[in-house]
């Protein structure tokens, strides 16, 4: 036993390599934040995304590999607003890395940087798994992304003051491109204003708020609860008198419920990428909105 431990310790010390460059290790809870961090941090940071577009960020295992990543992180970027409440606190507590604990500069909560929607009036679990600080899926509104990008730049400068000029110029460049793209998206999506769409979970609140889309209903009877036949029937009834243009779901949600409702109502189903990596064409935040708006427009036809 002891011999085994001694050999493994030596092996671990041997494989420990310290990077030569003073790069910041950025641990992003979700791919959208890894992408945003790359936009602002460029070559001064190395990003790692804890999740992919195919994983529900509400339900992630506090895996050993994630603890190991947080251990070496200089900055942890997450949505916050309790989205990661089931796993992030465990990673932070077990990693032995004080610089990324809540309240420290190394912990960046994107949702805390912007105004949030869906802040519950009543906090009661009988209405589902609601987040006390509001809806955490803030990355689907380009206006909010801009605010978060600015806050992230400030935070990067705080952690890595040597890179101040670099981060500032990256932000200016990003803002320029983002502003332009936002205007174009808004133009492309003009027709979506007032459209009624059925959602799986309320992941789309910020996107819809931005584009003026109305939520015609949710496949989840209550946030976090799987759909039921009874709930689909009541949705069908509601949609009969007040129809919707499409049903949307993310890559990590099972499309079965959406397809079932589509069969019942003849409303088309549209899968949206939700985040970076959710479609092979979605490689960054820009293409995320490109594809999302294109899919929504296609769904409208």
């Amino acid at each position: 036993m002891k011999k085994f431990m001694a050999t493994s310790l030596v092996a671990v010390l041997f494989t420990m390599t310290i990077p030569a460059m003073a790069e910041l290790n950025v641990f992003a809870c979700e791919p959208e934040w890894a992408s945003l961090a790359s936009e602002i941090g460029g070559e001064r940071i190395r990003t790692y995304s804890a999740t992919t577009a195919f994983q529900d960020p509400h339900h992630i295992e506090a895996r050993p590999s994630l603890i190991a990543r947080v251990r070496r992180a200089d900055l942890v970027i997450c949505s916050g607003a309790e989205l990661e409440v089931g796993w992030l606190p465990l990673l932070q507590r077990q990693a032995g890395n004080p610089s990324v604990l809540p309240g420290k500069p190394g912990y960046f909560e994107a949702a805390a940087m912007v105004e949030r929607l869906d802040i519950p009036v009543v906090l009661d679990r009988s209405v589902g798994d609601v987040h006390a600080q509001g809806n955490p899926h803030v990355h689907l509104d380009p206006r909010r992304i801009q605010g978060i990008a600015r806050a992230l730049q400030t935070r990067l400068i705080e952690i890595d003051p040597d890179g101040k000029a670099y981060y500032q110029s990256r932000l200016i460049d990003f803002n320029q491109r983002w502003q332009q793209a936002t205007e174009q998206w808004q133009y492309q999506a003009k027709k979506l204003k007032g459209t009624r769409i059925v959602v799986h979970h309320r992941d789309w609140v910020y996107l819809f708020d931005w584009l003026g889309i109305q939520i015609a209903g949710a496949l989840e009877p209550k946030p976090g609860l799987p759909t039921s036949v009874g709930h689909l029937l009541s949705l069908k009834q509601a949609l009969a008198s007040n129809p919707a243009a499409m049903i949307v779901h993310t890559t990590y949600q099972n499309p079965r419920a959406a397809k079932r409702l589509a069969q019942m109502t003849n409303i088309p189903v549209v899968e949206l990428p939700y985040t970076v990596g959710g479609d092979e064409r979605v490689t960054d935040l820009f293409s995320l909105f490109d594809v999302t708006i294109q899919r929504l427009m296609d769904g409208l036809q």
């Binding site: 493994s8 671990v12 494989t15 420990m16 590999s65 190991a68 070496r72 077990q94 032995g96």
Partner: peptide, 10 residues
């Protein structure tokens, strides 16, 4: 306890 600064969790 001590967590090693490695990619593999140790």
């Amino acid at each position: 306890s001590w967590l090693a600064p490695t990619d593999i969790y140790f």
